[in-house]
Amino acid sequence: GLPEGWEMRFTVDGIPYFVDHNRRTTTYIDPRTG
């Protein structure tokens, strides 16, 4: 799974992105792969 505090969501286009609730940021880069 994802690191603690992270969540995976999808855009309206079906593109996955990642929400970091710890820092309240979003990124398209998987936190597991950097």
Rank of each mutant, 00 (worst) to 15 (best):
G1S: 14
G1Q: 14
G1W: 11
G1R: 13
G1L: 14
G1F: 11
G1D: 15
G1T: 12
L2V: 03
L2N: 02
L2Q: 02
L2F: 08
L2T: 02
L2E: 01
P3L: 04
P3Y: 04
P3H: 03
P3Q: 04
P3V: 04
P3W: 06
E4G: 09
E4T: 13
E4P: 14
E4Y: 12
E4R: 13
E4F: 13
E4A: 15
E4H: 13
E4W: 13
G5V: 04
G5F: 07
G5A: 07
G5T: 05
G5H: 08
W6Y: 06
W6S: 01
W6M: 03
E7K: 06
E7V: 12
E7S: 12
E7A: 08
E7M: 08
M8N: 00
M8R: 08
M8P: 01
M8G: 01
M8H: 01
M8I: 10
R9G: 04
R9F: 11
R9Y: 08
R9V: 06
R9L: 10
R9I: 05
F10V: 08
F10I: 09
F10S: 04
F10W: 14
T11E: 04
T11L: 03
T11K: 02
T11M: 02
T11I: 00
T11S: 09
T11D: 15
V12I: 14
V12H: 14
V12P: 13
V12R: 14
V12D: 12
V12Q: 11
D13G: 12
D13Y: 12
D13V: 08
D13E: 13
D13H: 13
D13A: 14
D13P: 02
D13Q: 13
D13T: 13
G14Q: 06
G14R: 08
G14E: 04
G14A: 05
G14H: 08
G14T: 00
G14S: 06
G14I: 00
I15T: 12
I15F: 08
I15Y: 09
I15Q: 09
I15N: 07
P16D: 01
P16Q: 09
P16Y: 05
P16I: 10
P16H: 05
P16S: 05
Y17Q: 04
Y17V: 08
Y17S: 01
Y17R: 00
Y17I: 09
Y17G: 00
Y17P: 00
Y17F: 11
Y17L: 08
F18L: 01
F18R: 00
F18W: 14
F18N: 01
F18Q: 00
F18K: 00
F18T: 00
V19K: 04
V19T: 06
V19W: 10
V19Q: 04
V19S: 03
V19M: 09
V19G: 01
D20N: 10
D20F: 09
D20G: 01
D20V: 05
D20L: 07
D20R: 06
D20T: 06
D20Q: 07
D20I: 05
H21Q: 09
H21D: 07
H21A: 08
H21E: 07
H21K: 10
N22F: 12
N22W: 10
N22M: 12
N22G: 09
R23H: 15
R23F: 10
R23S: 15
R23M: 11
R23A: 14
R23I: 06
R24M: 14
R24Q: 15
R24K: 15
R24A: 14
T25E: 14
T25Q: 11
T25G: 08
T26F: 15
T26I: 15
T26S: 12
T26Q: 13
T26M: 15
T27M: 05
T27S: 10
T27A: 04
T27G: 04
Y28I: 07
Y28T: 09
Y28F: 15
Y28G: 05
Y28Q: 07
I29Q: 12
I29H: 10
I29L: 11
I29W: 11
I29V: 10
I29Y: 09
I29S: 08
D30T: 01
D30E: 03
D30F: 01
D30Q: 00
D30V: 00
D30G: 01
D30S: 00
P31Y: 03
P31K: 00
P31H: 03
P31N: 02
P31T: 02
P31E: 02
P31L: 01
R32S: 05
R32M: 03
T33R: 07
T33K: 09
T33Q: 11
T33V: 12
T33M: 12
T33L: 14
T33W: 12
T33S: 11
T33Y: 10
G34W: 15
G34D: 14
G34R: 08
G34I: 14
G34V: 13
G34M: 14
